[in-house]
Amino acid sequence: MVTSIMIVGVGGQGSLLASKLLGRAAMDKGYDVKVSEVHGMSQRGGSVVTYVKFGDKVNSPIIDKGEADYIISFELLEAARYVEFLKPGGQIVTNSQQIDPMPVIAGTAEYPSELISKMEAAGAKVDAIDALTIAEQAGSSKATNIVLMGVFSKYIEEISKEEWIKAVEASVPSKFLELNLKAFEMGLAAE
């Protein structure tokens, strides 16, 4: 049994830290873990995808169409872009923040409307939350990624809150620990 999670967003939003945290929590729990990232050009404001898989034995480091149990998205349009990677009835946990991609900025496309209902119509369950505002309340917009991981942690019964917190402590620099722990707690508490 393998749990497959895609973390998607816009280059520079901090998906690498989120995948590190998740990978760490799963490994400390004794699972086999694989995390696949893409570095380089796509990090310059492009659409970025990270795959995290854990279970008794993980072979492929990537997730194919119809394989993801969860999508964690830092941006609404990016959640919609990868919906076909979800199993039917799979869960999306997304930040409701919208970041205009270059075609929208350049005026050649519109930012799509009603994305949440479109994702639900595609067969996904959607948990959308304004993680940016929560992160700002926690002390910094930079902690948006950790807020979302706090929201997401509720869905993974195998890993306890204490184990998540241990993983946060092991994954962030000590001077940002307090901020990130607060952000995680606020994400966890968010409805």
Binding site: Q43, R44, G45, G46, A80, V83, E84, P101, P112, L115
Partner: peptide, 18 residues
Amino acid sequence: KPACKPIEGLPGRPPAMC
């Protein structure tokens, strides 16, 4: 594998200068 249906017509997000 069965999968959620793709959502058509979404604008792309190519990388851009910062």
